[in-house]
């Protein structure tokens, strides 16, 4: 395969703060590093929860308005969507999913962010969101490399495939 056909660098934007919103970006960033591809992770809006110390290990599955949720297993019978609004549903769904993830060695969010950073992936926070959420540097996990403006994000994404999740 000629070199031009190989992906060299990816910039992955994580914009959602639910479990199913955060993990795809983390898995893709880690997978890129495992293949020797440079990886930038840019967290914006509620996706920022994944790198905020207080929030990162308390990320849950969204059970309201999710017609794909099934019981008692992920491929079971479709759950009536209104049941998703019952208090504790999100907690239960998250606990079940985490158990399955643990079995196939997908780390919890905090550990995963650390793994990606140790693997050479860069972790960035979105400046607009940081201002909007009134966050200070000490609110972030230590792996955060920098708070970036959208302009800086494009600069450091030169030559990269940009993936929005």
């Amino acid at each position: 395969m000629p070199d031009d056909d190989e992906i060299k660098k990816v910039s992955i934007i994580v914009s959602r703060g639910s479990l199913e919103g955060v993990y795809p970006g983390l898995i893709m960033a880690n997978g890129a590093r495992m293949k020797g591809i440079d990886a930038n992770l840019f967290f914006t809006f509620f996706g920022l929860h994944a790198i905020v110390k207080k929030k990162m290990n308390n990320i849950k599955i969204g059970t309201v308005g999710n017609p794909a949720l099934c019981v008692p297993t992920p491929m079971g019978v479709g759950m009536p969507t209104w049941l998703g609004a019952i208090p504790g549903m999100s907690w239960i769904a998250t606990a079940m999913m985490k158990k399955e993830m643990e079995k196939i060695d997908i780390p919890p969010v905090g550990e995963f962010v650390e793994m990606i950073h140790d693997a050479g992936g860069k972790i960035y926070a979105c400046k607009a969101t940081v201002d909007m959420f009134k966050l200070a540097p000490q609110d972030f996990c230590p792996q955060v490399d920098k708070v970036l403006t959208v302009g800086e994000f494009y600069e450091m994404s030169a030559g990269a495939q940009i993936i929005f999740t």
């Binding site: 495992m34 793994m115 140790d118 050479g120």
Partner: peptide
């Protein structure tokens, strides 16, 4: 990677420095 860390006692950073550009592969 996680099994390498937890069971093998090999850190991510170490693995990437020993086998750059795709350590497990």
């Amino acid at each position: 990677m996680r099994r390498m860390n937890k069971v093998g006692g090999i850190e991510t950073k170490e693995l990437y420095s020993l086998f750059p550009n795709g350590p497990i592969k």
